[in-house]
Write a protein that binds this DNA or RNA. Sequence first.
DNA 1: AATTCGGGGTC
DNA 2: GACCCAGAATT
Length: 386
Amino acid sequence: MTSPPTALRLDLIRWYLKDRRDLAWRRTRDPYAVWLSEVMLQQTRVEAVLGYWARFLDALPTVEALASASEEQVVALWSGLGYYRRARSLHAAAKRVVDEYGGTLPSGVASLAALPGFGPYTVGAVRSIAFGESAALVDGNVARVLSRLFALELEPGAGASNRVLWAVAESLVPAALSKAARLKDPRSLECRDPQGQMATDSGPGTWNQALMELGATICAPTRAAKKSTRGPLCDTCPVSRHCLAYAAGRTHELPLVKKPVPSIEVALEILVIETEAGFLMRRRPDSGRLASMWEFPTREVDSTFLWPDEFDRATATGSVSELWSLGSPQKNHLHAITCHRIRASVRHFGTNKSSHPPSTNYDYVPRERMESLPLTGLSAKIMAAL
DNA sequence: AATTCGGGGTC
DNA sequence: GACCCAGAATT
């Protein structure tokens, strides 16, 4: 393991310790809290995670609390964040950590990688950030930063490309600090020496986070359409003097990007039926998209692609087409998921008539219970706008 | 190797 | 609107 070029390390670490964002999960070394943040941050921007992380930890502050929680509560705490498999994997992994490790998250590669939801990135992140182990990681930020620093022309997404990026990352990650050094000041996260000066020999967790922070705030992706208005802020980059792409004037060309898949337009009609017993809600099937989550009765217009169910069966009070025409129009919503762009028309229908649940997978949910229900993101937005 | 899985911040 | 994001699991 060669150590990173000293000047590069110094420049990046100094910048990071001075200019990094003050993110809540950087103020803790509780492995569970770090683990939770890393899972929430998978394919999700920092800004979106901020509120969720604190709320989740407040409700389920320990591995044991998470392990003994219901899956419904866990998914409800995740509602709106997306990629709900992450929540289910996290829950399953917490149960195994309690059963197999007495509630203490292991720090070894094999142990972590065997847990659901732990891919290569999360293993490296938890090991380096939570435990201070010398473990590399590659996420979208690191891939972009390393591609530019070393002018790597890699085929985007290819397995061989990923192997190169991981090899480079592993060649750069510093050795673990001594246990004494790490324990000296837990809050400072390897950041300062005993004189209060910023340490120049920071550990792997700091190094990895510095790489990601640079990618998130300075070494930004280039937008294919408008290369002039976006892209890396090389003028303020702390390591531009080490950057091969910068030296070659190619920062806007690297990394190579593959063209995105076109998105599909979807039109939905959504009916909010409010009775004395509560809102009529549908529970989605146990498998597939948004599995087991709850939503307002939904009908897809002109096709049955995402929401194949007729919502005519959703109510015992006559045809839904009739309710649709009687309902009062609500705020329409634009909702983008993966490669679909959804236009949702919403109508609200109130009635004093309470009735039995009209069919399986439907139920009336009182307003005060809606918040504890694992709602789909779209239904949560509709609820918030009522 | 290619798909699937949500949703939103940000320009 | 268009990206693309502190990816993992499945096909």
